[in-house]
């Protein structure tokens, strides 16, 4: 009825046209571009970072079968991340993040997520052999032979793989948080990219809790590798491995079970359940060192 009435007047027509003009680009951006070079990571006709694209490195990293990774973020001009919820930052519409995976020094994959007006959009790009650009992988994912990758094969995630880790996390952006930025946080605050963050973070950014360096490293590892599912609002398992900013660390979990699942690549038992085909020997050794340290000081590592 409203549309019919609108069509009767020129002013109404203009309003309808304006509505279409606003809606169309929104609908169009639901699908990520076919090439990495079209995502805004680089300045035109180059592989130099585009203006406003900033690198960052999480304090604790997710194990990705030994891949070397680099990450970048770009916020729309003038927009800021809302840090009111310290463990679940809100990102403005138009936020883009990239993560590049290298095997044997060669870029194999770049993942891209963007907050569109309709929600988060996820894509994986497979690098061409000539290294000039990367092509979007089909939504069902891909497994290809990559000589430099462990076992000679490389898995590009499907869209549902992306959602498996990102969709039900406290924030879909897993590596750009107060806890994960740590010492880099003051610089991002200084640049005016973070809104509603406590002023004290400019001089005292939050860190991983723990009495010793080993405990901090182990808790950081569990946070980076497990927290996206094992947070208090996550999977219905009584195992909480997520850390909360400036809060005491959760009780020490049953690490025997954690080690058992970390230490197998039986696909039906392994943890994390996806994104890895090879055991992280260093990660295992770190958790074992934490258990040994707790046994020494009598602080009871497991239930």
């Amino acid at each position: 009825m409203t549309a019919r009435r609108s069509l009767r007047t020129m002013a109404g027509m203009r309003r309808l046209l304006l509505l279409f003009a606003v809606l169309l680009p929104t609908l169009a951006q639901a699908e990520p571009p076919p090439l990495l070079s079209q995502t805004g990571l680089w300045a035109p006709n180059s592989q130099q970072l585009a203006p406003g694209v900033r690198p960052f490195t999480p304090q604790a990293v997710l194990w990705s079968d030994g891949a070397d990774k680099q990450r970048w973020i770009r916020l729309p001009p003038g927009a800021r991340v809302d840090a009111r919820k310290p463990d679940a930052w809100q990102f403005p519409i138009g936020t883009r993040l990239w993560k590049e995976f290298r095997q044997g020094g060669v870029a194999v994959e770049t993942r891209f997520i963007e907050r569109s007006a309709r929600g988060w959009v996820y894509a994986s790009y497979r690098w061409r052999a000539d290294g000039r650009d990367a092509e979007r992988v089909p939504p069902q994912g891909q497994t290809v032979a990559v000589a430099a990758a462990p076992g000679g094969r490389y898995d590009f995630p499907s869209r549902s793989d992306c959602l498996a880790c990102h969709a039900d996390a406290r924030s879909p952006v897993l590596g750009f948080s107060a806890l994960q930025l740590g010492p880099q946080l003051p610089a991002f605050m200084q640049a005016g990219l973070i809104a509603h963050a406590p002023a004290r973070w400019r001089t005292q950014p939050p860190g991983v809790p723990g009495a010793t360096a080993v405990e901090r490293a182990a808790r950081g590892y569990l946070h980076a590798n497990c927290a996206h599912c094992h947070h208090s609002g996550g999977v219905p398992r009584p195992l909480r491995l997520a850390l909360d900013v400036e809060r005491p660390a959760p009780p020490v979990p049953n690490l025997e079970d954690v080690l058992r699942r970390m230490g197998t690549r039986n696909p039906y038992v392994q943890m994390p359940p996806l994104g890895t085909r090879h055991i992280d020997a260093e990660g295992l050794a770190l958790l074992q060192a934490w258990i040994a340290a707790m046994a020494l000081d009598g602080s009871s590592p497991t239930r």
Binding site: S160, L163, A164, C165, A167, D168, C229, V235, P236, R237, P238, P267, Y268, P273, L274
Partner: peptide, 25 residues
Amino acid sequence: GRWTEKDFIQTIRTGRKLGRGREIL
């Protein structure tokens, strides 16, 4: 017992535990 209605629906809908974990065999 700890599942929510959403967990159940997502599991059956996607064929992955809780809609995000391992595939249902």
